[in-house]
Amino acid sequence: MWEKKPVILLILATAAILVGTCITMVLPFVWVNTEADRITSVTPYTPLQQDGRDVYIREGCNNCHSQTVRPLVAEVLRYGDYSKSGEFVYDRPFLWGSRRTGPDLARIGGKYPDAWHYKHMADPQSMVPRSNMPDYDFLTEAEIDPEYSRKKMETLGFPFTEAQISSLEGKTEMDAMVAYLQKLGSDIPWRQSAKTEVVGELANPSPKDKAAIRAGQLLYADNCAMCHAEDLTGDIGPALDEPYLDDADLFRLIHDGIEDGGMPSFAALGSARLWQLVNFINYRKQP
């Protein structure tokens, strides 16, 4: 019958399409972004952060960077605590992405100091050799329009103060982008709860060992040189070319990071590699 009646076919096809649609797309609205999902420490974006988010969207950053950490061992080790629904309630649109040509950014906030992001956005290869990320230097030339920001905050219904709007005067899109990146994933205190502690005596397993120093040198180039310079003379981070800390304290510092100083924790490298780094930094000059 329907094979001879186009209108009936259209109605039946629409019905067939709407069943799965209602159950899997409409129904979840009953639970998602409700009180049950709410995390009290999660706040809306400030005008500057929202401007940064809009630049992120405009530049299509989501084509290479995801923003959701899955509850998988390696992923939590690499990026941090897995993502919770309540962390995204102010995200219009969501920016979870589908591809990781670059790393996930859901937990990037607070990982590096602002200076790292400014340098990296302007010239990614200067910080991460062999990276294939394009330069976004031009963001430093584009100024934020405070009145447009106000309009956006009003549209989104986010709270803001006049001081926040007037402080946008003279700010660039690069400032906004860095402010946004530093907000990402930092609304919940996951760093504190994920922190591991070094317990017991710390003894360098292979002090001054040549192989360990060489391995440490490679690790340094990949993980440390971007902030402390290739020759350890310091840049964003302090110089390390003079004796700095004894082996155990240096290990502890690299393992824990310095939270308010902008130094990330490198616990994920594992103790074997951390000792190689310690050996390189402390004994590279010794005969």
Partner: peptide
Amino acid sequence: YSAFAGTNDANVQWW
């Protein structure tokens, strides 16, 4: 700005 937020927006988008 999308009419849906966060997880809802993701689910609508991939539907």
